[in-house]
C-alpha cells in the first residue's frame, strides 16, 4: 500500500492505496467525489478528465499514487466560490451543451484548459481540442456553441459557418 497526500479542490486529503488504484478510483471511492465519471476502459472517452497541477489529464489513466503531493481539481471544484456556476458552466447551461450529463464534467474540464491556452478559439480549434471527449447526446453542436460563448465570441450560426 502507498500512503498518499494531495490537495483536491484546495483541500488536503490523505489516503492509502494499492499500486493499481487509479486516480479516478481514489476520487470516486475514497473521497466520494463522484462527479468524475468512467465511460470506458481504453482511455478514450474523456469522462474522467481532471486537472493535475493545472493540466488536463485522464484520471482513469493515472495511478492515484502518482498524484501524491500534487494539486488535483475535479468538476466539484469548478463552480464559483459562492457555489454559482462559473462562466464555462453557465455557458453550457445557457446553450444546452449537455443532455444526460455524463460526459459533461470531462467537457468542462477540457474547455477550461482550452480557453486558458487559447482564449478565442475558432470552431475548428474547439473541435480538435475535444478529440478525446466523446459525447453521445448532443452531437457536439451546443458544446461548441457553449465554449464559443464562454470565450466571449459570437455564437450565431452565420459566424461559425463563415470560418
Amino acid at each position: 500500500m502507498n500512503d498518499i497526500k494531495m490537495k483536491v479542490n484546495g483541500r488536503e486529503v490523505t489516503g492509502s492505496v494499492e499500486g493499481r488504484t487509479l486516480l479516478v478510483e481514489f476520487l470516486r471511492n475514497d473521497l466520494r467525489l463522484t462527479g468524475t465519471h468512467v465511460g470506458c476502459d481504453t482511455s478514450q472517452c474523456g469522462a474522467c478528465l481532471v486537472h493535475v497541477d493545472g493540466e488536463v489529464v485522464k484520471a482513469c489513466s493515472m495511478f492515484a499514487a502518482e498524484a501524491d503531493g500534487r494539486e488535483v481539481t475535479t468538476i466539484e471544484g469548478m463552480a464559483n466560490a459562492d457555489g454559482s456556476l462559473n462562466t464555462i458552466q453557465q455557458a453550457f447551461q445557457d446553450h444546452h451543451g449537455l443532455q444526460c450529463g455524463f460526459c459533461t464534467p470531462g467537457m468542462v474540464m477540457a474547455a477550461t484548459t482550452l480557453l486558458r491556452d487559447n482564449p478565442k478559439p475558432s470552431e475548428t480549434d474547439i473541435r480538435e481540442y475535444l478529440d478525446g471527449n466523446i459525447c453521445r447526446c448532443t452531437g457536439y453542436h451546443n458544446i461548441v456553441k457553449a465554449i464559443m460563448a464562454a470565450s466571449g465570441q459570437e455564437v450565431d450560426r452565420a459566424a461559425l459557418a463563415a470560418e
Binding site: L49, V57, K58, A110, T113, D131, G132
Partner: peptide, 9 residues
Amino acid sequence: IGDPAVRNR
C-alpha cells in the same frame, strides 16, 4: 498525438 490529456501524460 492522441488528445490534449494524452499529450500531458
